[in-house]
């Protein structure tokens, strides 16, 4: 992914693509999915996130809502990365993503296309947008763990 990291035009194209054609978009009407409503008090980002977890594997993640380019693209990218992952893997990916935004050390390989946000941490007022979907997934995973215990 080094090529993406050093290529601002490619980064922008990836973000625009996910914003204009968000993946795993629209919710399903299925009680087996866990759902969470995530919204920012400080702006208009307002999304619903759904996850289907079976035997500790994330079988599906979906989202819907009204959100800015950064919130939409970052959530869309996240859904693609974590789909099919075990919960442990997803936890690790999420932690690495937060580390990247907090300008700490992180494992690039785990983040795939999410690497497009590698410098977003410098724009402190937009970190909330870039993490809204990711925080939602973390909450859903944690809730799943707690319910099982």
């Amino acid at each position: 992914m080094d090529s993406v990291k050093d290529n601002p035009i490619l980064k922008r194209e990836i973000i625009m693509d996910h914003y204009q054609n968000p993946r795993n978009y629209n919710l399903v009407d299925d009680n087996n999915y866990r759902q969470i409503h995530m919204y920012l008090d400080s702006c208009f980002d307002d999304i619903y996130l759904q996850v289907l977890i079976n035997h500790d594997i994330i079988e599906d993640v979906r989202f819907d809502g009204v959100a800015c380019a950064i919130a939409t693209a970052s959530t869309s990218i996240m859904t693609e990365i974590v789909k099919g992952c075990s919960i442990r893997q997803a936890d690790k990916i999420i932690q690495n993503y937060f580390d990247m935004l907090n300008q700490k050390d992180y494992d690039e390989k785990l983040l795939k296309e999410a690497i497009v946000f590698d410098t977003l941490g410098r724009q402190a007022n937009r970190i909330k947008c870039a993490t809204i979907g990711w925080k939602g997934l973390k909450k859903l995973i944690d809730k799943n763990k707690n319910d099982k215990e």
Partner: peptide, 10 residues
Amino acid sequence: TLENCIDAVI
């Protein structure tokens, strides 16, 4: 433009 708005963040 959308492009410039995204460039402003990344």
